[in-house]
Design a protein around this nucleic acid. Structure first.
Lengths: 343, 343
DNA sequence: TTCTCTACTGTGAACGCTCACAGAAGCATG
DNA sequence: CATGCTTCTGTGAGCGTTCACAGTAGAGAA
């Protein structure tokens, strides 16, 4: 009467049952299960047939108990989750990682560490070895969880370059700087010379890099820096609206804006519309991310596509490699300029 | 040299270590861990202190091996995932479930079953007992995975009433019909009489119920049904645009539209704008969901709020109850009319 | 006193798997 | 013919926990 679940599932077959069914020993079945080395073709065949017949599925708990591995990884989100969950990129990332892991038969555990309590609980859970590694999505610097995990030697791959941590942590990132450079060069090629920027939060690598790319290209083009053209944002739509208003007030002759995220660009478009500016005739607007917001915007938004599908794949690849004993690695992937109606 | 991970974590303390440290037996430690019944206050105290000192965390694999439970649940998404991941409600749901489960110290495994292969793999994984129960998000009817899980006796809670399955499966849903009724009554109260509807997909419970609510209220108000006012949609923005165009063509005198989702309502607004119709003066528009799209729309969208935070909490509550041996249950939660500028 | 009952504690046996080892068989080499 | 090597197979031990059971001690009842 221990299992009193509705429907009363009966005891699933064990490796013993398979061994008996196949006429071999547990050891041989186990070897087949783990790559099939040192197993005769005949035994191989018999075991596979027995597995099919019995519907055997390995008990991962028993396996983990002895191997010390859990054959699962965590997808860890630190800090307030609202932001991430509203970000369409985040969804693509989560989906991509889940699928890439599924291809390796590795389940993904979703973990949210918003409060201090949750942080502690999850750190314990992870360091206790309940996952083999962690895919970390944490935008801001100085994340204490990340630091603890790194110190505990937990295989870790961050999405985007972590600012606070040492060089010993793996990460996968889009080439933010190069993407920004592409966009600003594109605006220059349209003949624009008074190019403003609404930055991302400057305590995130993305925010810093995108601004740097903007500055570099203008400098290379021999255009003097004008701080009135640089206004801060935090990736939110509202901050885009505020940014555009501020930009128009500080530099009324602005003829283009590079906005560090599509969501902010939506806000910029709304503010420009209210101010009676035509896009792209009066002011060209370039976004960043190629999120659904970019195609939903009016006019549709020229933007920088980040290769999120590749990012998730690479994160998983690097993490699994690291779990397998390889050294941490950094991967930087190229972005792509997507031209639409706003420029 | 088995664990060759970078950082070389050393063997974590076991229940043995805690027992020795506390001067008691394994059994006593285990009892403390599992509720503390039949344990003297002194032993209780000593064990807790030892746990703190050693930093002990229970090995869930060993526990699962003997209890047969996994103390984890799956969050299962069947069918093409793009739709869900683009849906902001889905995000709230996923987040809410994760948090509600975390409060019970139950990890959540995210599972995507898009292709036939994945479906098979995941069904095996689940029926093998690797999760204690499943939170199911599957909009369409006749989901083979759901059916298999139900037959296998896996505790299951669906989000929204599953059409195909028998009454033996738990679900939690917003009161779609009542929400639709509220919205249509609201439109009637504004003096509108030629009220159109863009439906959701009619193989989903939400689509069916919302349309039913619309029909009921009109009938109750003594307004004859006019099928030219009913156009199909599939919850996508594009289908909203198409629906509005069709509606204007079929029934040019339409003075209000109840749209079965905010995303579609965005499309409706865009199409009406193009057609030169003013909202709400010429045509009032009501959405459904109260998603971010509702506040982002111009004009901001009057809509029906679904209690997603409560839905996720209830799903988790019902699932855990069912895992604990209780019978399946259906929970229907009330919606709320949110008035904004589009009506 | 003696018995019973309750509250508490310790111990061996599992759970299902992998790992290390021992051995068997086949084949070439000394 | 012994020896070594390779390939393959079976067996015992043990991973860390819970569970069932057997016990102990103390209190109260007969």
């Amino acid at each position: 009467m221990t299992m009193s679940n509705t429907g009363g599932r009966r005891r699933p077959p064990t490796i013993h049952d398979v061994a008996r069914e196949a006429g071999v020993s547990r050891g041989t079945v186990s070897r087949v299960l783990n790559g099939g080395h040192y197993v005769s073709p005949a035994a191989q065949e018999a075991v596979n047939a027995a597995i099919r017949r019995t519907g055997y599925v390995v008990n991962r708990h028993a396996r983990s108990l002895i191997t010390g591995r859990s054959d699962s990884v965590g997808f860890l989100l630190t800090e307030p989750q609202e932001r991430f969950f509203e970000d369409p990129n985040f969804n693509v990332l989560l989906r991509g990682c889940t699928q890439a892991l599924a291809a390796h038969d590795v389940p993904l555990l979703l973990m949210l560490a918003g409060t201090e309590d949750e942080r502690r609980r999850i750190t314990r859970y992870i360091t206790a070895g309940h996952v083999d590694g962690v895919l970390l999505v944490s935008s801001h610097s100085g994340d204490p969880v990340a630091e603890e995990l790194r110190e505990a030697g937990v295989p870790l791959v961050a999405c985007g370059k972590p600012i606070g941590l040492g060089s010993k942590v793996s990460y996968v990132a889009a080439d933010d700087r190069d993407g920004a450079r592409d966009m600003v060069r594109h605006l220059l090629s349209l003949g624009r010379r008074r190019i403003g920027v609404v930055t991302g939060p400057l305590d995130t690598p993305g925010g810093v890099e995108r601004l740097a790319g903007y500055r570099e290209v203008l400098a290379e083009a021999g255009i003097a820096a004008d701080e009135r053209l640089v206004v801060p944002g935090d990736y939110s739509r509202a901050s885009g609206e505020a940014g555009a208003e501020r930009l128009l007030a500080q530099a009324p002759d602005v003829d283009a804006v590079f906005v560090a995220s599509d969501l902010m660009a939506q806000g910029v478009l709304a503010a420009l519309h209210r101010a009676g500016k035509r896009v792209p005739e009066d002011i060209a607007v370039g976004g960043f991310d190629d999120s659904p917001a970019a195609t939903a915007a009016t006019p549709t938004l020229t933007t920088i596509r980040q290769p999120w599908d590749r990012i998730s794949n690479e994160m998983v690849r690097v993490l699994l490699a690291q779990i397998g004993g390889e050294d941490p690695a950094a991967v930087i992937l190229p972005t792509e300029l997507v031209k639409r109606d706003s420029t």
